[in-house]
Design a protein around this nucleic acid. Structure first.
Lengths: 286, 286
DNA sequence: ACCTGGTATAAGCAACACTGATGGACCCGC
DNA sequence: GCGGGTCCATCAGTGTTGCTTATACCAGGT
């Protein structure tokens, strides 16, 4: 169960080929073959079926573990190295597309004004990657978002001990195409929309809605990106409904159930320094 | 960041000595010294101060990560191996001291009656160890408990992807010595007891109460074990108050805040088989 | 100053993990 | 049905790693 072997196992499973994985990892095909064989004899089980290469049941189980494990390893390394790093006057903020709403953008501005010498680099990344990047030390601070009941924390993939603070909760609106029969309402109940056609997008995952409300939410167009502007255009063209935070565009307020768009600041334990000051600036009512 | 090295690092930090750790791990002192040196050069930082041996700041950070990391590794291995194991007709159930309350004991009896061929081994372990043992494959099913708001999940240390189901929620009572001025009440508010003297015990950790209610809860005797019988004797002798589930003994019901003693069944993803059937039997209203 | 308990370093050796070459299984087009 | 191509398994060879043993080094107690 050497992480080294785990890494090539993941690469092989992803690539669907020993040779391709070998190339990607800078090994020879022979080395990869031997590494997989070593893993399999160690566990006493075949992990991959060959030709075509696909995980066995045991392999699939291992794959589920491997990702988080390798992430935690990177996180541990990054966390240790951070203790030695001088307080940088240049730091990276990773934010999911909907996370940096107007309120937070304003707080970020205030935070930057407090520390004029500080160079901030902002990066927009996929919602799932924010925590991973922060854990791995590729970003110093992260902002993720999601839909929850008021004051409930977000469900994030585990990536080691990190601080998570809710920094914003905002009303949700149902985005509708102009001229939609419900567009004039002052509030909508989600339960009344279970039979509507919904946009399937990572920005408002339908599984999450089904978790919260129940079955339904038929998928219309399946949009794989995370670009808010594009999503609004898709909604306007009638490809399906979606939920957005009120600040992200017009829509009819969601009256029930009580759900909010929540943004969380995620960061490793910070020593006092520029990063900690910026984190404080991003926190509410500071 | 080889787990091998991580393991000896943890051992050295715990033992407080290279030589002692070497003996414990079956290495020579020289090997341990080299392993620690390898870790330190890999990370580019000193992790331990020598003579006396104690972690540096970076080392302390690494220690925080190492435990969970190694646990997850064991969990991954156990989980993979489980896919190959034949459905055993002998399985182990790990339970925290307060987890196997009368209701669950009854359900366990029913579950065993359903599968007369099944040999069940029950083991009582520390509350924190239950999840770890299940993750590591040392137990097939686990029962943990804790104090939460109704229908809130317990806060458990992360040990990989495992299913957790609430199987019991029960009223809490304040255990008081006989003849205590409040003993005759029909209900007590926790807020009225913040200034009382409380037993410090893992069965009802005072930090948890402070989390839920606020400061206060002065510690009386510090009891390190998890034996319920002993705790009740300590309460009776006036060493301090404590909270217990109603089924664990007499006491005055806790009227506010609304807190419950919750028991959760924790298990890895189970293929259909005896373990899954027993898990179903332990689940509520089955 | 000397001994004791402890960590670091040096040399030697066995095991490991890679490379490169070869062999065998399968797929495909002809 | 045959030849070529693709892909994984295996083998032999080799450099590296990681252990052990032996020894140097360092601090504290006597």
């Amino acid at each position: 169960m050497d992480p080294h072997l785990l890494r090539t196992f993941v690469a092989v499973a992803e690539a669907g080929s020993f040779s391709a994985a070998a190339e990607r990892l800078g090994y020879t095909q022979s080395a990869v073959s031997q590494q997989i064989a070593a893993l399999e004899t160690d566990l006493g089980l075949p992990l991959l079926r060959r030709r075509p290469v696909e995980p066995t049941e045991a392999g699939a189980r291992l794959l589920e573990h491997a990702g988080p494990l390798l992430l935690r390893l990177r996180a541990a390394r990054a966390d240790v190295l951070r203790t030695a790093a001088l307080p940088a006057h240049r730091l990276t903020l990773a934010a999911a597309p909907l996370a940096l709403n107007p309120a937070l953008a304003a707080r970020l501005a205030r935070g930057r004004a407090e520390q004029p010498r500080l160079r901030v680099r902002l990066r927009t990344t996929g919602r799932d990657l924010v925590a991973a990047q922060v854990a791995a030390g590729e970003a110093d601070l992260g902002l993720t978002d999601g839909i929850t009941a008021p004051s409930d924390p977000l469900r994030l993939p585990d990536s080691g001990p990190m601080t998570r603070i809710g920094v914003s909760e905002e009303e949700l609106v149902v985005a509708l195409p102009p001229g939609h029969p419900l567009a004039g309402r002052t509030g909508l109940r989600l339960a009344d929309l279970v039979d509507a056609r919904w946009l399937a997008t990572p920005l408002c995952p339908l599984e999450r809605l089904r978790d919260l409300v129940g079955d339904g939410f038929r998928a219309g167009l399946d949009y794989q990106g995370e670009d808010v502007h594009t999503v609004r255009n898709l909604v306007a063209a009638g490809h399906g409904l979606t939920l957005l935070p009120a600040s992200a565009g017009p829509g009819v307020p969601l009256a029930a159930p009580r759900l909010v768009h929540r943004v969380e600041l995620v960061h490793p334990s910070l020593p006092p320094g520029p990063a900690a000051r910026l984190a404080a600036a991003l926190s509410p009512s500071s």
